[in-house]
Design a binder for these strands. Structure first.
Lengths: 243, 243
DNA sequence: CGTTAACTTGACTTCGTTCAAGCGGAGTGG
DNA sequence: CCACTCCGCTTGAACGAAGTCAAGTTAACG
């Protein structure tokens, strides 16, 4: 029941550096036994003392914060191979919950840091991991700050696709989280997420297959619409340098 | 002209840990000579190879990214004592520009990391710094994701106030950046920033004195309006735990 | 004291939210 | 196997907060 095949590092494209970082750091988790979390179960809670770090062996996890009244912000989703809690000084800044059924390994924060400090390979791997998380946070700020609903959705779908295994067969993308999770991650409402997907579908850019799968028809168009201007084709180059 | 009084660590309230972190890491910059940057000048540019880390001796710096067409996101402001570029793997993820005239020290990335790795006190300080940056990034995501214009402005003013020296005399807060900078940091337009400040002024919560100073009249109210629910007074506690 | 850039204010538009109703598929029980 | 129910999602219509466009106003600087 636990330990299974451990297909922990099959995410497709991130930087070499990052993949290496993940791999070497995971060695610290091999000794631990993977625990099962059913979908919806909390792994750790915002404000709890961060005694442990977690590694996802299997499944998808969401990290969220809740402010004031019920407003929820999902700061990140994490997938098989990812560590949770690496960038925490003392307390958890977020609640982590299983989106799907998960298998998760756990090590104590202290032993993790001791091991990292002791090793010449683990240490840069750890730094690299933190920097990568920082990069993701910046991307998310840009998304939340300047992108409209369509750009947000396209960015999200692209990021999901880039993490998934080779887009299983002919471009069918698994979307493990529900609409509310997506909305809370993109700073939108569930209705806007739904409408935007419908709009993308009507334009034959993606085709929804049930609630949790997307046929990606036009990846290039998706990239254009994400607002990241990876190509400088269209009206992309009007930056007015004021100094 | 360089080196002056070096009032580098006068920010008021962050965690002890963080202040210590800043202090010990700054020892690495003492050997360098402080260079002057006039307001508006770029310190480093997004995409450049990150050969150096910077420490602000004096002045205020903005970090920004530009996406697609001219849309600019200011991911953070930094003040005297802060390091710039600590959370970067290889390339700069942002452009850093002087908001006010600045004095800045610079060390090579390599020597910085060598020194940090070599020292038992510097290393945790560095980790702590990264974690603190991550926390700030999370806060910003929450702000951009769920707060309205008024909450954003109040949060911003509060954060500024908490960084400033003891709120110079009777609550007069220096706001070094212009309206456009504030707008680009809060994910608003310049007009909305202006209107919102006017509204806060009409309610006697702050009183603007010129373009770059704010008399803070009602700090408590400001905190309430920031939407962070530090107090659980009003309608704050309706979180529906679904599991 | 005059010029100019930065800021404020007003009128109108827009995109996303809100509120409300309808749809559909997975699970349950007859 | 079908009918029923429930929940997650979609769709529609009305609303509203912030954006846009266009004047004014202010204050910073020479």
């Amino acid at each position: 029941m636990l330990m299974q095949k451990s297909h922990a590092f099959e995410h497709a494209e991130t930087t070499n550096e990052t993949v290496l970082a993940g791999q070497s750091l995971s060695s610290l988790f091999f000794a631990s036994v993977a625990e099962s979390y059913p979908a919806g179960k909390a792994i750790c809670r915002e404000g709890d003392e961060a005694k442990h770090l977690f590694q996802i062996v299997e499944g998808v996890v969401r990290l969220h914060r809740i402010i004031g009244d019920g407003r929820r912000v999902i700061t990140a989703f994490h997938f098989a191979g990812d560590l949770i809690g690496a960038s925490l000084p003392s307390d958890f800044l977020f609640t982590a919950e299983a989106v799907t059924d998960c298998k998760i390994r756990r090590v104590s924060r202290k032993s993790f840091h001791d091991d990292v400090a002791r090793s010449d390979t683990l240490h840069p791997a750890y730094i690299s991991l933190l920097c990568h998380e920082m990069t993701a946070a910046h991307e998310q700020m840009v998304l939340l700050s300047k992108k409209n609903a369509e750009e947000r959705l396209c960015s999200f779908i692209l990021k999901l696709a880039s993490r998934s295994s080779p887009l299983s067969a002919q471009g069918l993308l698994r979307v493990p989280m529900n609409r509310q999770d997506i909305a809370d991650h993109l700073g939108l409402t569930i209705e806007t997420v739904s409408r935007t997907i419908t709009k993308l579908a009507s334009r034959k850019i993606v085709i929804p297959e049930g609630r949790h799968d997307l046929q990606i028809v036009n990846l290039a168009r998706l990239a254009q619409l994400s607002g990241d201007a990876d190509d400088f084709s269209e009206k992309s180059c009007h930056r007015v340098s004021l100094h």
